[in-house]
């Protein structure tokens, strides 16, 4: 059991800081996360908030990497569907009596 920090490095050509921060938030109950930016690399320094076994730590670090990829895809979907999302919500609330200028 230990509370030693681990470092994960992500290339900003592939992952945005936004995706990495969102992933870090989902692990807030397990790790305190510090960020550093060197060249085109984003470093995540993950310090367990409580004692954790080496196997447990490795498992969660792998999950963290998967989560960064998930967040990257979420942002991609969000960006690509922004226009249609606004259109759908606009249609949904048109003539509902809820908008000020109706």
């Amino acid at each position: 059991m230990a509370r030693e920090s681990s470092v994960l490095i992500f290339d900003e050509h592939f992952y945005s800081i936004d995706a990495i921060q969102k992933a870090a938030y989902r692990f807030i109950h397990l790790y305190a996360v510090d960020f550093a930016h060197k060249d085109s690399k984003i470093e995540c320094i993950l310090t367990p908030t409580q004692e954790i076994s080496a196997e447990g730590n490795e498992h969660y670090l792998n999950e963290f990497k998967k989560e960064v990829l998930d967040q990257h895809l979420r942002i991609k979907i969000k960006n690509e569907t922004e226009e249609v999302r606004n259109l759908i919500l606009g249609i949904a609330f048109s003539n509902s009596g809820l908008l000020a200028d109706e």
Partner: peptide, 9 residues
């Protein structure tokens, strides 16, 4: 084209 959706494991 994609429509807005969310996903989780």
């Amino acid at each position: 084209k994609l429509l807005p959706f969310k996903f989780d494991r």
